[in-house]
């Protein structure tokens, strides 16, 4: 039977596809800062309680040009680099071992699951007893904090390498070392790099905490001291620097991912 008239079929497949816009993001961020600036001047908030963005920028400029903020940052960055490198090397060794060998797997998983939940900053006093109040204890705390997530991401990276690729390599007679180098490591790389993101933010967190507990130099010590002296603009200038460090590290890892795992 032929219907009397045909209605247009209404479109109902829209939505659920949010898009990112760089410009929109920038506007939102600048808008927030402008709102903050306006609020502090209109409401006459005490700069001791909450300085305006302009005041923070001025403090940052002063600290960089006339103060020693850069050398404080340098001290922290060196601690992060040393602790992170040590933790990553040891973590990768254990994690890859856990992914490849039965003994390392059994031993590694029980040790990691027992020690991973400990907040590493709680071990700083012990580290100070062992390595002294100087650089050693801070570097060791960061290394410990980085070690566990790195080991876990490396082990799960090896586990995530498709079994059929390993069987393929075996079927073509590749020796064990070649399979690890050409199949397992590249296959585990996405997970290892994702682990870098986590471990680098842990390293930043730990360096600040450790410097707040026992250090004369470093960005953590600087922020704490500014707070004690009620120099809120300087305190927040230090926080801005910390967020910049975090951004730079995230960008660097992003660039590494774009270069090394563009095959995904």
């Amino acid at each position: 039977m032929k219907p009397e008239r045909l209605e247009p079929v209404p479109f109902r497949g829209g939505g659920f596809a949010p898009r990112m816009s760089r410009a929109g993001g920038a506007v939102a961020l600048l808008g927030l800062i402008a709102l903050w600036q306006a609020a502090t001047s209109i409401l006459h908030v005490s700069p001791l309680f909450m300085p305006s963005p302009l005041a923070i920028a001025a403090a940052l400029y002063q600290l960089v040009v006339h103060g020693d903020l850069l050398s404080q940052v340098g001290v922290s960055v060196l601690r992060i680099l040393a602790g992170w490198s040590l933790g990553v090397v040891a973590g990768l060794a254990l994690g890859l071992g856990m992914g490849l060998f039965s003994f390392a797997r059994s031993a590694g998983f029980s040790i990691v699951s027992a020690l991973f939940p400990i907040p590493k900053i709680a071990l700083l006093p012990l580290m100070i007893l062992w390595f002294g109040i100087g650089e050693g204890s801070k570097v060791a705390t960061i290394a410990l904090g980085v070690f566990f997530p790195t080991a876990i991401s490396a082990a799960s990276g090896v586990d995530s390498v498709p079994r059929n690729l390993i069987r393929m390599a075996q079927s073509f007679g590749l020796p064990f070392g070649d399979i690890v180098r050409k199949v397992v490591l590249p296959g585990a790389l996405p997970s290892i790099l994702a682990g870098f993101r986590i471990s680098s933010s842990i390293a930043l967190l730990l360096v600040v905490s450790a410097e707040m507990i026992g250090a004369e130099k470093g960005i953590g010590a600087f922020v704490l001291q500014a707070g004690n002296l009620m120099q809120t603009d300087q305190l927040l200038a230090g926080v801005v620097v910390l967020s910049l460090i975090g951004l730079v590290v995230a960008r660097a890892i992003g660039a590494l991912e774009a270069r090394l795992i563009d095959w995904r």
């Binding site: 059929n164 069987r167 393929m168 079927s171 073509f172 590249p186 995904r264």
Partner: peptide
């Protein structure tokens, strides 16, 4: 070079 050689259902190519 490899007397017994497989061709796999899922191709088993290294994506990288």
């Amino acid at each position: 070079l490899n007397p017994l050689t497989f061709v796999f259902q899922d191709f088993a190519l290294l994506p990288w």
